[in-house]
Design a protein around this nucleic acid. Sequence first.
DNA 1: CGCGAGGTACCTCATTTGTGGTATCACTTT
DNA 2: AAAGTGATACCACAAATGAGGTACCTCGCG
Lengths: 209, 209
Amino acid sequence: MTSESPIRVFSVDDHPLLREGISALVNSQPDMVLCAEASTGGEAIQMFKQQLPDITLLDLRLPDMSGIDVLIAIRSEFPEARIIMLTTFEGDVEIQRALQAGARGYLLKNMPPSELLDVIRQVHGGKKRIPPEIASQLLEHMSDEVLTEREIEVLREVAGGNRNREIAERLFISEETVKVHIKHIMEKLGASDRTQAVSIGLRRGIIQL
Amino acid sequence: MTSESPIRVFSVDDHPLLREGISALVNSQPDMVLCAEASTGGEAIQMFKQQLPDITLLDLRLPDMSGIDVLIAIRSEFPEARIIMLTTFEGDVEIQRALQAGARGYLLKNMPPSELLDVIRQVHGGKKRIPPEIASQLLEHMSDEVLTEREIEVLREVAGGNRNREIAERLFISEETVKVHIKHIMEKLGASDRTQAVSIGLRRGIIQL
DNA sequence: CGCGAGGTACCTCATTTGTGGTATCACTTT
DNA sequence: AAAGTGATACCACAAATGAGGTACCTCGCG
């Protein structure tokens, strides 16, 4: 490691204070430099094209769009982009989707800064890095069945307090079909009733409040 | 404003990166200095007694206890403590409880740093400061009826997917009484069924996942 | 002391939900 | 072509839920 060019880091988060913290941390490292910041998904995509950073730190929750969508948008044009999700804890579904969409790392905001620096260097070196606590979360639900799009849609309606008949009307299907979907949802999530299905769906990030 | 002694700020948050951001921001101001940091509630209470800061920035979610409890613990011994809640968005109930417990300000982490500095100075000057978006959130539910302790307890059981009979057994009351509680809960929250009651309870911070 | 709030309990009845089946159709994968 | 998956639909029946009452007890507050 002689006089390599520094790792150019791009930070995307809608919390200015957190960005400030990242900036201070990254710029304090001799082998890194913060090359850009963004606070929205739109900004992030635009800025990425301009800067082509080595590493992108991406929050999952942004004001205008999901971090996952930003991830997908960037990687569809730049498949080699090295993107690390940096977020407060979300459900296992979000983690899984991020990794499937090509995230190279997944970090929690409450982790020690040294961990972040570590992951940045490893991902820059071409590795993938998911901390054990996240990995175990993921394994926990590895064998679980996955809800279909339609089922998620129904679950959202259930969470809104609609009864089966109302859901049927809203989705233009019969009440009986709604029942079938809910039955499958409860089976897949291991819920004993629709209410618990909603609780579990929220906890696992399958639906949002 | 001659050569006053600087405002001594104490930051409590379990996100090291965020604390770093706050530290950088506060220390960059001529009239402020960060005098201490803590990442847990226990640490916070202990450190407060040692440092007696002018302003405390307190996160609502800490690993060991609720920020509200820290607030109460500190203010029971130091009623003059000037504490500002600094958190990502929570339900109106959390905000209300924080203010009732004596918080002098309530800020969101995604607000611009200038806003934070502003609030620190105003609260230090003896004022209270709640940003309009928070205040409006609060007003939204001002006239709402408040759930009783028992009702919250029942709502938690409902969220766990228990049926009325199970809740009755777990709380050592009759199933009929559970029904009465749930009826009241739905009326107060404006929910059309138990499931929506859970959704609303979660959104408003009455119960947690 | 009386009054209101909160918690408890019981009753009835209509509606909704959950369970167990069977079956068709479109689409993808093998 | 066959098998699998997801979505749709219907039936019947048991169980749970929600809506409407009434009533009693305790505790704290004015």
